[in-house]
Design a protein around this nucleic acid. Structure first.
Lengths: 166, 166
DNA sequence: CGGTTATAGTTGAAGCGTCAACTACAGCAC
DNA sequence: GTGCTGTAGTTGACGCTTCAACTATAACCG
C-alpha cells in the first residue's frame, strides 16, 4: 500500500496518449460516416454479427458477448432495430428463457448497403493509413489485450467498490 | 459508384475485429476501475489534462481538443466537476468570449489519488500484457491514425448527410 | 465606424447507455 | 415432486452524450 506507483515512462506516455486520442477519433469518424447513412456504429455491429451468423440469427447473450455490450444494452439496441424492421425477436426453441434475434429481409438489405460505406470508412481512417505490417502488429497487440481481458479474474466479478462516501 | 467495394482480407478482418473488441474491453475495464474510486474515465481525462497544463488551467476549447470531446460535452463535464469542487470556471483574460477552467486544490488532491489507481489499471489491462516492442508498435500505429485524422479534410466539416428519408 | 461572418461557449431537450430490480425458466439437490 | 440457486432477458429510472439553437464577442471588410 505504501509502495510507489509504477508510473509510465515518457515513451509509454506518448504511446498511451496516442492510443487514447486515436481510438476516440476513430470512433468519431466511423460513427459519423455511418450516421450519414442512417445507423450508428453499435447498431451496425449488431446487424453485422447477425449477418455473419448461421441462418442470420443469434441468441441475445451470444450477441452481447460478440459485440462487448451489456445484455441490457443489447435489449435496448435490438428494440430500436426491431422498430425499424431490421431484426425480429423469437423465443429460443431449446431454452424457455432464451430469445433468438433474427435478421429480417429488410435487415439483410440494409446491412449490405451499410457495409459498403463502412468498409470504405475503416480503410480510409485506419487500414490505409498504416503500413500492412503496422496494421498486423496492431491486430496482434489487440488480440493480446483481448486475451488478457478474458483471462483476468478481477475484471468480471467484484461488483463491489469499497469506498464511496455517503 | 458501380465499382466493387474493397473488402477486408481475412487477415485484415481478424485484426479489425480484434481492434473493436479490445478497445471496447479496455474502455470497460479502465472505466470500471476508476468508477470504483468515484470518477468516470472522461472526467478523469479532463482533470488529468488540467493537471498537466501550465498553472493547472486551460481554455475550454483547448481542453475539448485535447480529450477529443465536443465543446458541449466539455461544458457539461466541467459543470459536473465544478459541482464536486474540483474545477473552477473563470473568464479568459484576453478573450471576452473565452472561459478558462482551473483546477482547485481539492481537484489537485483528487487527481493525484485517482492517478495511482488509473496507472495501475492501464498497466494491468494494456501495457503489461504486451511486449515492450508490441506496445511501442501500437503507439506508433496510433500516432499515424491520429495524424491521418487531423489531415483528412472530409472528417471535420461536411455537416450535411445527403440521404435521409423524411 | 457599421455590417457581416466566424469563433467561444452555453443551454435544454431528446436519445442512448447504465444500473438495480424484476420475471421467468433451467438445473441441481434431496 | 419441492426448494434452492443460477442463468436469460427485460424494464424503467436516472445520468451522460448529442444535437440544434442561442448569446456574446472577435475579426474582417468596406
Amino acid at each position: 500500500m505504501a509502495s510507489e506507483a509504477r508510473w509510465l515512462t515518457a515513451d509509454e506516455q506518448v504511446s498511451w496518449r496516442a492510443y487514447l486520442r486515436a481510438t476516440r477519433e476513430l470512433t468519431v469518424a466511423l460513427d459519423r460516416d455511418l450516421q450519414c447513412e442512417g445507423i450508428s456504429l453499435p447498431e451496425y455491429e449488431l446487424l453485422s454479427m447477425l449477418s455473419e451468423a448461421d441462418d442470420d440469427r443469434l441468441r441475445m447473450s451470444a450477441l452481447a458477448d460478440l459485440i462487448v455490450q451489456s445484455r441490457s444494452r443489447v435489449t435496448h439496441t435490438a428494440a430500436r432495430l426491431e422498430r425499424r424492421g431490421w431484426v425480429q425477436r423469437r423465443p429460443a426453441p431449446d431454452d424457455g428463457r432464451g430469445v433468438v434475434l433474427e435478421l429480417t429481409d429488410e435487415g439483410r438489405d440494409a446491412i449490405r448497403r451499410f457495409a459498403v460505406t463502412h468498409v470504405e470508412s475503416v480503410r480510409r481512417h485506419l487500414v490505409d493509413v498504416l503500413r500492412p505490417d503496422q496494421f498486423r502488429a496492431l491486430g496482434e497487440a489487440m488480440l493480446a489485450v483481448d486475451a488478457a481481458y478474458q483471462a483476468d479474474p478481477t475484471t468480471p466479478d467484484p461488483a463491489a467498490c469499497p469506498t464511496m462516501e455517503p
